[in-house]
Write a protein that binds this DNA or RNA. Sequence first.
DNA 1: GATAAAACTACGAAATCCACATATTTACTC
DNA 2: GAGTAAATATGTGGATTTCGTAGTTTTATC
Lengths: 155, 155
Amino acid sequence: MNSKTRAAQLDDVSKAIIEQLQEDGRRSYAEIGKAVGLSEAAVRQRVQKLTDAGVMQVVAVTDPMQLGFYRQAMIGLRCSGDTRAIADQLASMPSVDYVVLTAGSFDIMAEVVCESDEDLITLLNEQIRKLEGVVSTETFVYLKLHKQLYNWGTR
Amino acid sequence: MNSKTRAAQLDDVSKAIIEQLQEDGRRSYAEIGKAVGLSEAAVRQRVQKLTDAGVMQVVAVTDPMQLGFYRQAMIGLRCSGDTRAIADQLASMPSVDYVVLTAGSFDIMAEVVCESDEDLITLLNEQIRKLEGVVSTETFVYLKLHKQLYNWGTR
DNA sequence: GATAAAACTACGAAATCCACATATTTACTC
DNA sequence: GAGTAAATATGTGGATTTCGTAGTTTTATC
């Protein structure tokens, strides 16, 4: 197993199915079938495959602001040592929803979601900046989220 | 209209419903009802409300890597003038899937999804860096995506 | 062109969704 | 606290969808 890393070569029908579910994750297989020219069972089969392969997943996404998380930020980290170990530790923090190893003047970038400035300060000082190997951090507080898409890959 | 900005005060039941759908966006209303202690119709009604209010949406999300987009990057922009206008223009570019206005040494951060390094270079030079008011950019090429959550808000 | 694997269709049974009528709870006013 | 309106929840029956499975077509390989 583990087709999680590369692989996949989606045909147009599968892409069309994904597009349908990107518009509405609860659309019925029958309706999708009509839209893409396939039987209900075939759509079901393909969705199962795509999901199993990790190509796609159908989930609820929420707006943090509407749920009481009024402070979001991107944090750039400069590190020494193994960045993967640090990334793992960041990833294990509940307030951290996004971690990526990067090339450039930061080694890691992490997005955090906090309820308040207080929480952000605490998170930074008591958790992130205390991690072994974190040399320095730079915080980019979000002023306004302008665009957020979940539909890569089928344009 | 437009409860898109603040508002919302979710009770535990609605949070539980969201959690259910974050695990599986296609879970049946009946099953969710059983899990949260509500009738099927009530769950449906709440989901409809949450969706209409923009608190939550059920969608398919995909793994860009598996769809042939082998190069992702975060781009930090330093700008002069109105950052909102620039953000709008960035947001209108298909390769850009995430745009946020920030405080700090960057005014805007944008995530981009490209098929190749070639595409990234083209995007940067022929589109992003040509925008009026973009003073300088810094590109953080993604080496490894480590964590990506869609389930903020109900922890 | 034979063969095997993969993908698709068809179809009945079970489960789910949906619309609506009714009941209950909540919030507010006096 | 009683009265009232609005919001929220339940129950029900019919329409729709999902699910499993068996059989057919397509695709790939040698």
